[in-house]
């Protein structure tokens, strides 16, 4: 049996949870196996019957389990796995899912493959998984030797399909939780003031890197972004490490992953740490004085030359076009 740990937000399944259910159903089909799931939270019971095509859904309803409570969730999942003895356990590869399954893995002393993007089935058994390394710039095929096999699914690795089939059996699970299971829990949520268009919302992102040379030069990027539709300014790790821009502007493996219609990469060499963060852009336009820069191997459009000359000229050209 394949067992899915589901992540919810406001009594709804998150998109990565739906993707994980899709991947689990697909794997179950290949293995000729059943799929079951675990739902934990407050007011999540109503979701269980909507998980069509699953054999069974275990529900833990507890008002103390609103939001993600790490140790309690790990204890419940570990107990359910010991009782149900699945051959594979899947969770979404989100911050919550990776945290949750890591805690389960150490409790049960099992291996865990985080950030999986594919499965290799041989002779009716899961032989190996493909998972992301270097934020997705490399893929690793790896065999999980311990049983059950634990894995988290990289978000966007599969697209969520509607659930079809019969309604699952709903099992109500009761668990004993003590103070210890609540020693890690969110105390409060401090909402952030929203300022401007975020990098993930922008349709066009203008990013600057080492080639900018200083914080001042980012004004050129700001001006260009101001002339473009729904545009925001981002930066590379070099730019944020040098304090030219705040870390919240960083695009990359350790920053924000963006997926705009157009990414304009200015003075950016194309280090893999950065490219992982922008590879989902529909189009990439690179401006760089070094025609050998790796960015040109991963861009759709290229302009070779000095950004300090090209950007002012481009800004003037766009102003002219807009004025006309």
């Amino acid at each position: 049996m394949i067992f899915v740990l589901l992540e919810t937000a406001n009594q709804r399944l998150t998109e990565p949870s739906l993707e994980t259910l899709t991947a689990a159903r697909d794997l179950a089909l290949k293995l000729g196996d059943a799929t079951e799931a675990l739902l934990i939270g407050s007011g999540v019971r109503a979701l269980a019957p909507t998980l069509k095509g699953l054999q069974s859904v275990s529900v833990v309803e507890d008002t103390r389990l609103t939001g993600y409570v790490p140790e309690a969730f790990a204890k419940i999942a570990a107990e359910a796995i010991q009782k149900k003895r699945p051959n594979t356990v899947l969770a979404p590869g989100t911050e919550v899912g990776n945290d949750w399954l890591a805690r389960v893995a150490v409790r049960l002393d099992l291996g865990l493959a985080a950030g999986c993007t594919g499965f290799s089935v041989e002779n009716g058994a899961l032989k190996s998984v493909t998972r992301t390394n270097w934020g997705g710039s490399l893929l690793e095929e790896i065999e999980i030797l311990s049983n059950p096999k634990l894995l988290t699914l990289q978000p966007h690795a599969v697209s969520a399909q509607p659930l079809t089939g019969g309604e699952p059996t709903v099992e109500t699970v009761t668990v004993t939780l003590d103070e210890r299971d609540f020693r890690v829990r969110m105390k409060e949520l401090v909402r952030k003031e929203k300022k401007g268009l975020s990098l993930t919302e922008a349709k066009v992102v203008v990013g600057g890197g080492r080639g900018l040379g200083n914080a001042e030069a980012f004004k050129l990027l700001e001006e260009l972004a101001g002339l473009l539709n729904n545009a925001a300014v981002g930066a590379t790790r070099v730019a944020t490490s040098n304090n030219w821009r705040p870390h919240s502007d960083q695009i990359g493996q350790t920053g924000t992953q963006i997926a705009p219609d157009l990414y304009i990469a200015v003075g950016i060499s194309g280090a893999i740490q950065h490219m992982v963060g922008c590879k989902n852009s529909k189009k990439i336009l690179a401006v760089n004085k070094d025609s050998e820069a790796p960015i040109f191997q991963r861009a759709d459009y290229g302009v070779i030359g000095d950004l300090h000359q090209i950007l002012p000229a481009l800004i003037a050209e766009i102003k002219k076009l807009k004025g006309a």
Binding site: G111, S128, N133, S137, L138, L139, E140, E141, I142
Partner: peptide
């Protein structure tokens, strides 16, 4: 070990 790498590949 609980995990064994088979290979690395480029996407």
């Amino acid at each position: 070990p609980q995990m064994a790498r088979e290979l690395l590949k480029k996407p």
